[in-house]
Amino acid sequence: MKSMDTVNSPCFNPDTRGALSKIHLPVAGISFAKTKYEVSQPKGKVVMPEYAFNLLENFIKSSSLPKMVSISGPGDPMADPVKTIKTLSLVRESHSDIPLCITTLGFNIEDWIDELKKMDLSHVTIFMEAATAATAEKVYAWIRPGRKNLSITKGAELLVAAQESAVRKLKEAGIKVKVNTILYPETFEEIEAIAEKAAEYGADIMSIIPWKAEDEEADCGTERLNKATELAEKFIELVPAPQGCENDLDFSSEKAAMPTPSASRPNVAVVSYGGMELDLHLGHATKVMIYGKREDGLPCLKEVREAPKPGGGEKRWEDMASILDDCFVLLAAAAGEKPREILDRSGLAVMTFQSEVEGAVDVLFGGGKKGKCKK
């Protein structure tokens, strides 16, 4: 089990929060809840586990090991636990010494505790904004731990129960727990109870994060923050709010998170109506073009393969993965979540965007405008 290093960790010590000290991998796109204080805005880019891992590897090759790798958004890691565990596994298998952590509301922890324990996490951060369901009901606009819509009253009850269970289960598994609490007006009234419950459940440490309102007069304010700190630190050790440790790599473009060829997967697969543009949905593909490098290093069309016929459910995509087992990426104009998931598990990344085929292929092989194969 990784010990909780509060001196050198960018999560706990502001003096260590230098450039890229902590890297966030944005593979979580689903949320469990939304507070009534959150401003609606588009979520950040979400990528598949292999994409995130590939960009992390590229950074490590050109720089050094980060002080920590985190999955904390743009949604909740435990709302899509398969992708979260996959990402953690990829990092852990290649880098046993990199501290790993996740940030979550607490739902699904109990169901996945065995898998989380295998990841040898540095810690798990739980966001606790309420000690009681009544207060959670005031803070949150909606809470949905599963696929069904729930009343805010029922959702609040489930959230409070899930957070207690999460902290206790994590501690039983030997995983350190940090509690983050944003100091909303309702939260301030219950901050002492939140700290007391966090300590009772077994949490190791806590941060109180001042709420920044659009109207500065509505901010929690220094006086209120100091009072909340005074009340909470009677029950649990406090560390500075984690402001400034979110040093993401550049996931703003597909190119930033591109997979790269390997000895066993040297080729690029492409589906296209006419072979010139990425203009075909993967589900409609009947043929797949295979691009690879010539002896002089330039990428060219090597062959065209028959795609598995539509129908057959998941088996179609399993067959597609087998047919393309020498390809490291599949390019299409669009693709469904299920084929992405199945192909991704097989080691074949799926990238979707609109572009000229030759240009996209050339970029994947490390080129730009130069170096295109002359036919």
Rank of each mutant, 00 (worst) to 15 (best):
129 E>Q: 14
131 A>K: 06
120 D>S: 11
132 T>I: 10
126 I>H: 02
130 A>Q: 00
97 D>T: 15
126 I>N: 00
141 A>M: 13
116 L>N: 04
143 I>W: 04
116 L>Y: 07
145 P>H: 00
94 S>R: 11
90 L>M: 14
134 A>T: 12
93 E>K: 14
125 T>N: 15
145 P>V: 04
91 V>M: 07
109 I>A: 00
138 K>D: 04
111 D>C: 07
124 V>I: 07
128 M>C: 06
146 G>N: 12
103 T>A: 15
127 F>S: 14
130 A>F: 00
86 K>P: 05
113 I>R: 02
90 L>I: 07
105 L>A: 13
135 T>F: 05
96 S>P: 14
117 K>C: 00
88 L>I: 11
87 T>D: 01
120 D>P: 09
141 A>T: 09
103 T>Y: 13
103 T>L: 12
105 L>K: 14
96 S>M: 12
99 P>D: 06
102 I>A: 06
112 W>D: 06
117 K>M: 02
118 K>T: 08
126 I>V: 15
104 T>F: 02
133 A>I: 12
103 T>K: 10
133 A>N: 10
117 K>P: 06
119 M>D: 01
132 T>K: 15
108 N>W: 04
102 I>D: 06
109 I>V: 14
90 L>E: 04
139 V>M: 02
120 D>R: 13
131 A>Y: 02
136 A>R: 03
89 S>N: 13
140 Y>H: 11
89 S>C: 11
121 L>R: 04
100 L>H: 09
101 C>M: 13
132 T>N: 10
116 L>S: 03
88 L>M: 08
121 L>H: 01
145 P>Q: 00
143 I>V: 07
100 L>G: 01
141 A>S: 14
115 E>W: 10
125 T>E: 08
115 E>F: 07
90 L>Y: 10
140 Y>C: 03
96 S>G: 13
142 W>Y: 13
119 M>I: 08
113 I>V: 15
135 T>S: 03
106 G>C: 10
90 L>N: 07
98 I>E: 00
109 I>L: 08
115 E>A: 12
121 L>V: 01
123 H>V: 04
115 E>K: 14
142 W>M: 04
85 I>A: 00
123 H>Q: 03
122 S>R: 09
96 S>V: 14
142 W>V: 04
121 L>D: 04
136 A>N: 04
106 G>R: 08
87 T>R: 03
86 K>W: 11
99 P>L: 12
137 E>N: 02
105 L>G: 15
124 V>E: 00
107 F>G: 02
113 I>E: 07
92 R>T: 10
105 L>N: 14
128 M>R: 06
107 F>T: 06
127 F>D: 15
89 S>E: 11
103 T>W: 11
118 K>V: 14
92 R>C: 06
110 E>C: 07
139 V>I: 15
109 I>G: 03
122 S>W: 09
122 S>I: 09
142 W>A: 02
142 W>T: 05
108 N>Y: 01
96 S>N: 14
87 T>A: 01
119 M>P: 09
142 W>G: 02
129 E>V: 11
137 E>I: 04
118 K>H: 08
86 K>E: 15
114 D>I: 12
108 N>R: 10
112 W>V: 04
104 T>C: 01
116 L>Q: 05
135 T>L: 02
143 I>C: 03
130 A>E: 01
